[in-house]
Design a protein around this nucleic acid. Structure first.
Lengths: 110, 110
DNA sequence: GCGATCGTCAACCATCTGGTTGAATATGCC
DNA sequence: GGCATATTCAACCAGATGGTTGACGATCGC
């Protein structure tokens, strides 16, 4: 029986799935719309979404004939917490991001 | 050719390898000592260490006939930075975060 | 030099993974 | 009802993964 971190990290190890997660950062999406930018079959995307769902990285909810996909941050948070045991990355990276914001003036505050 | 995040997350997806990383958190270790608590062959552990090395999660240095294994936080840091975009996406400016990813070269697949 | 120790290599095996295609199941629309 | 749309299922395939064993090359200690 794979451990939760096993399935989470395995799900994150595929570039297609990471790209899907990035797309879902912007908005919830229907399966067909998720598949649109990829040069692979809808069935393949459906499998990827199943893996992301089983990993707890997204949730899927069917409304009518459309199945909506939505980020579920819990599993990623668990994995992130595990990784933080290995270093001080968290504050370091946030500082880097903040510095980037300051440098580019793209900060949400204007 | 797999992306760096591919290999990092794939390496982290195995419980044996995560346990090895945890052990190395305490101290650098020789290959034989890494293998000791596991009920599998030395060759299998050697393969796992090779995967961790190729993923940039550890470094190995041979001194005499003993090969020392040591944590290398860089790859884990990259992965952690990538994940931060998901853990805290509420307060941050998404466009800015994506631009940040693009600028740091961590977005090749997501 | 010689035997023991450290670690890898090569070949092999079963299972998992990521993709394909074609058929099947739901649902929405006229 | 009947057709189009949305999504999954089933069977299949090539290649990767995680393990085994046995042989091998280095290095240490006596």
């Amino acid at each position: 029986m794979p451990d939760r971190l096993d399935t989470t990290f395995a799900a994150l190890a595929d570039p297609t799935r990471r790209q899907i997660l990035s797309m879902l950062l912007e908005d919830d999406m229907a399966v067909t719309d998720v598949a649109e930018p990829f040069e692979m079959s809808l069935a393949a995307i459906s499998k990827h979404l199943g893996i992301l769902t089983r990993a707890g990285l997204i949730t899927q909810e069917k409304r009518g004939r459309v199945k909506w996909c939505k980020l579920d941050p819990d599993a990623m948070k668990d994995a992130s917490v595990w990784m933080q045991g290995f270093g001080q990355f968290d504050p370091v990276n946030l500082e880097a991001f903040e510095a980037y914001l300051a440098e580019t003036g793209l900060d949400r505050d204007g």
